[in-house]
Design a protein around this nucleic acid. Structure first.
Length: 563
RNA sequence: UGGGUAGUCGCCAAGUGGUAAGGCAACGGGUUUUGGUUCCGUCAUCCGUAGGUUCGAAUCCUGCCUACCCAGCCA
């Protein structure tokens, strides 16, 4: 399904990071490019991570280098095996493979510890007894320098002894920390003697209870990159401030490789939120039904919704990579799925909101099987046969008693084509006592079988339909944006991001589908003719398939009708 | 207010001194048994702003404005 659309597309991928890599290759600084995707296993991956994954693995692929998957697991209090499994699944699903290069920062705990002792021996790190609050208080502010810790000038021997006893579990959490000795007056606040190690009596998902001291991100990340010989360490903009510290550790230690950190802007998508904290909150507060709720911007959610890996990769290519903060239109993502699915999803007829039609001049017990192409964009998709008889359903919104200007669907005495079937003309409108339309009486033209007429008369409107006696019942889940505004983070004073939650982000309806959909399997994707693209949800049961709407078709009539 | 970044079409984004790519969206039109697809066309005399250098600047220099990030023993 994917290969076909992949080859007729050639997005020229050029960005400032690739330019740097090109220069490094040309100058001979590097001969092989190694990148890495370094998630912390404390939550599910989202579309923002997909951007990073496509960037890192994409570069490795294009430069014939390699991209490592490395779990940044230095804070056991937040990390779980469940997350590492979901992350691996999502990266694979997106179409990338790290091969042998699966790593964990925790693999380097011993090496990192040895490096720390070396820093102590070189007089570049010390054991501090200040409490967390005291450290904060002596750090200074954005405009004022901090003050030196009273423990800053301990002897190397004492520092070493204390550090070893920290590791041995002799002290309580928070009683001691290992700090780099840099500069309490640095305008880079992260350089004001940052904490390198803290004591935590917490079980680690991989190292168990082997360690009770854990290294901090700034200390761990640069050295992990170095150990793996990463050439270009790509991260998001908020780490720009940390780069001096990244370089400091690399330069103070006798490392073989000195990776270069390069920062790019993280992805923001309109009508959704992207922070792990907020996504976790949506899950915990049951606003959505779990991490893979189809409204979530998580990879798992998008997969369940029906987005294809190809469409997400294409999206990542199209949004580009730069240093300016930005918010991408959700429209672009929708364009990418439609483009993929238009080529690859078979067409099928489903009447979302059924209105019964009785064809008065059609024989009572006759059933015909009409041939229908599965995908006009792909002749290889073949044909199928759809039953047709006297009673059928059409879409309720395809009929209007008082037709507006430019309306070319059904209305009293007008003629339309039933896709793949016949021309019908509306003769009578049946209503209940409240005036609601309950049924339409129509006639059909037996000469128009297949949807053509010999006299070549123009029938502008074409409706989809299903045969009443053969239709199957299906549940349809119509999804819309989780939020009603492009930027949910802009809220009135005193409100939080939930202020803009869309109360109509999910609508479940019962519909009638053509019988072929009985065979649909979980994850199958279809275009419901004239409606949109839908994917079979895993909540389906044999008696009742459940479809998620991935995205609607472009609807220029809806636009016209608004005028 | 210290430091770090960024400001090119409604939204992304190329461009790196030689006179504004491309995509999405939008708009107009042709084709069409999906008001889908597809096709054709329109869409920045102008690059946050004010000066300066230059034959020539979005690209170099200076000032100013705006936005984002940094004061976790989170990442």
């Amino acid at each position: 399904m994917e290969e076909k659309s992949e080859k007729n597309k050639e997005i020229e991928t050029s960005n400032f990071i690739r330019n740097i890599i090109d220069d490094d290759l040309e100058s001979g600084k590097h001969t092989k490019i190694i990148t890495r995707f370094p998630p912390e296993p404390n939550g599910y991956l989202h579309i923002g991570h997909a951007k990073s994954i496509c960037l890192n693995f994409g570069i490795a692929r294009d430069y014939k280098g390699q991209c490592h998957l490395r779990f940044d697991d230095t804070n056991p209090a937040k990390e779980e095996t469940e997350y590492v499994e979901s992350i691996m699944e999502d990266v694979h699903w997106l179409g990338f493979d790290w091969g042998e290069n699966l790593f964990y920062a925790s693999d380097y705990f011993q090496q990192l510890y040895d490096y720390a002792e070396l820093l102590i021996k070189n007089g570049k790190a010390y054991i501090c007894e200040l409490s967390q609050e005291e450290i904060r208080a002596t750090r200074g502010t954005l405009t004022e320098p901090g003050t030196n810790s009273p423990y800053r000038d301990r002897s190397i021997e004492e520092n070493l002894d204390l550090f070893r006893r920290m590791k041995a579990g002799e002290f309580e959490e928070g009683a001691y920390s290992l700090r780099a000795k840099i500069d309490m007056a640095s305008p880079f606040i992260c350089m004001r003697d940052p904490v390198m190690y803290r004591i935590k009596y917490v079980h680690h998902h991989r190292t168990g209870d082997e360690w009770c001291i854990y290294p901090m991100y700034d200390y761990t990340h640069c050295l992990s990159d170095s150990i793996e010989a990463i050439t270009h360490s790509l991260c998001t903009l908020e780490f720009e401030n940390n780069r001096p510290l990244y370089d400091w550790f690399i330069n103070e230690l006798p490392v073989k490789h000195k990776p270069r950190q390069i920062e790019f802007a993280r992805l923001n998508l309109s009508y959704t939120v992207m922070s792990k904290r907020l996504l976790l909150d949506l899950v915990k507060s049951n606003v959505v039904n779990g991490w893979d709720d189809p409204r979530m911007p998580t990879i798992a959610g998008m997969r369940r919704r029906g987005y294809t890996p190809q469409s997400i990769r294409d999206f990542a290519d199209r949004i580009g990579v730069a240093k300016a903060n930005s918010m991408v239109d959700f429209d672009l993502l929708q364009f990418c799925v439609r483009e993929d699915l238009n080529l690859n999803a078979n067409r099928v007829m489903v009447v979302l909101d059924p209105l019964e039609i009785v064809i008065e001049n059609y024989p009572e017990d006759k059933v015909e099987y009409l041939e229908a192409e599965n995908n006009p964009e792909n002749p290889n998709a073949g044909n199928r046969y759809i039953p047709f008889s006297k009673r059928i359903y059409i879409e309720r919104e395809d009929f209007m008693e008082q037709a507006p200007r430019k309306w070319f669907r059904l209305s009293p005495n007008s003629e339309i084509r039933l896709k793949h079937a016949y021309y019908i003309t509306c003769k009578e409108v049946i209503k209940d006592k409240d005036g609601n339309i309950t049924q339409l009486i129509c006639t059909y033209d037996p000469e128009s079988r297949g949807g053509w007429s010999k006299d070549g008369r123009k029938v502008k409107g074409t409706s989809h339909w299903v045969c009443k006696d053969h239709a199957i019942d299906v549940d349809i889940r119509l999804y819309d944006h989780l939020f009603t505004v492009p930027d949910p983070m802009i809220v009135p004073e005193g409100k939080d991001y939930k202020y803009h939650l869309n109360p109509d982000s999910l609508n479940i309806i019962q519909s009638k589908a053509e019988p072929s959909l009985k065979e649909a399997k979980i994850g199958d994707k279809f275009q419901f003719l004239r409606q949109g693209y839908f994917s079979v949800d895993y909540d389906s049961i044999p008696e009742k398939p459940v479809f998620n709407r991935i995205v609607g078709l472009k609807d220029t009539w809806a636009k016209e009708a608004k005028k």
